[in-house]
Design a protein around this nucleic acid. Structure first.
Lengths: 227, 227
DNA sequence: AGACCAATTATACGTATGTTTATAATGCGT
DNA sequence: ACGCATTATAAACATACGTATAATTGGTCT
């Protein structure tokens, strides 16, 4: 749910672009321009918007990125936009900038997971440091997310029965117990279990158990998506 | 390391006391008294200090707790105290209060893991809500910590050879591979492996693998202690 | 020295797991 | 109707795992 993708436009598609994208949402045109220039000067790709709505309506590319967000905006405020992004399961790291901030705003932003909260005027280097930290955070989050997604797609190649067997194997049951649980013959369980190992590309039971942990099998917790 | 313990003083020792302790570090006597009264009124145990140094010199009981900390203090500032506590691996959740805060202070506090940052004047209820959130966080952290500590003490009952076998089992190696790795006969590995299962109280291999994950075996990450 | 303990190995047996080959019913898409 | 994937089982075999009993070595305690 709530996935956003983008055709890579034109050009190289092979290896992921090594460049991060900095999104800027700032209504003041002159500030927006100077931020854009600042980031471009250090070789960052920039996509700037004048409001939260504009950014939401755009296609957000699925690459490492962060968001430099003004608190005071026309329409949805920066803080409300942060809340909205969280609701949409879009976990882009956010750096707030503001001219008229106060402590409660700061607390709300940081509690909401913001990477930093900078008051104007701030030194360019402060913002750049924050951007580096934010993109690094996003890179790691994406890496972890990719691992989970890969495992999930492997898991989905399993037939329903094979999935059931995998769950019970992860729970530590013996083949004969699994057979009883599912109303199968033990030999059938063995065969499905072999399929599970092959399809999941697990090289040992320990491997498979760890995959199960990562997948959250045997754990009944709420959903969780990405971007 | 840096562990702190306390003899439970006198009285009941059996089940953990259900009451949380709120530490208060605030140099202004009248504020300190009113905070103490506020917390006592809602049934919380309070231990108040006039400076960070005083608290550091006291014996911090090993129970669920949180810290209400003034930013401006004689000697070590509240923010520096937060840094110092982190350095000492003391992870008590902190709620900052201040009369003259600013945004950079707030950001530093929140980045350092503070639960909240309240500017005077604030409503009593705001502080009480923050204290509830903080103690809840500490309770969960302690619970997780206790789980790990229990596993660690079980792990320490293993002989060096048994620990080595457990690591390699968790890595997914077969008995004969473990034997080759350690220069042992396979039968020896089997016997140690049996000891491992018994001593760790693992009821299945899946169980043991999960314990290994929790213990961070096969992961070479830095230290981590508690309180 | 003699008793003793921890670490290690061997033999032997029983159970669990994994794979191969073969058979068969069911349901789904073209 | 035909082909195909899924589900299910069987027989047979090979390998891996677990445990009980017993023996060996080397060092420690008395």
């Amino acid at each position: 749910m709530t996935e956003r993708f983008d055709s890579p436009g034109e050009g190289s598609n092979a290896e992921a672009s090594t460049k991060a994208i900095v999104f800027v949402v700032e209504d003041d045109i002159s500030v927006r321009r100077s931020l854009t220039n600042l980031f471009k000067q250090v070789g960052l790709e920039v996509i700037a918007f004048g409001s939260a709505r504009e950014m939401l309506q755009s296609q957000i590319p699925d690459v490492t990125s962060c968001l430099v967000l003004d608190v005071r905006l026309p329409g949805l405020s920066g803080l409300d936009y942060q809340t909205e992004l969280a609701r949409l399961n879009i976990h882009i790291p956010i750096i707030f900038i503001t001219g008229h901030g106060d402590i409660p705003m700061t607390v709300r932003a940081m509690k909401g997971g913001a990477v930093d909260f900078l008051s104007k005027p701030f030194r360019d280097q402060e913002l750049l440091d924050a951007v580096v930290a934010a993109t690094e955070r996003d890179r790691k989050r994406r890496e972890a997310q990719r691992t989970v997604a890969n495992l999930q797609s492997l898991f989905e190649t399993l037939s329903p029965r094979e999935q059931a067997v995998m769950r019970l194997v992860a729970a530590g049951l013996m083949n004969k117990q699994i057979a009883a649980e599912l109303g199968l013959a033990e030999i059938t369980v063995k065969i499905y279990r072999g399929h599970v190992m092959k399809k999941m590309r697990a090289r040992s039971l320990a491997d498979l158990i760890r995959m199960s942990e990562t997948l959250g099998l045997s754990a009944s917790r709420p959903e969780q998506t990405q971007v």
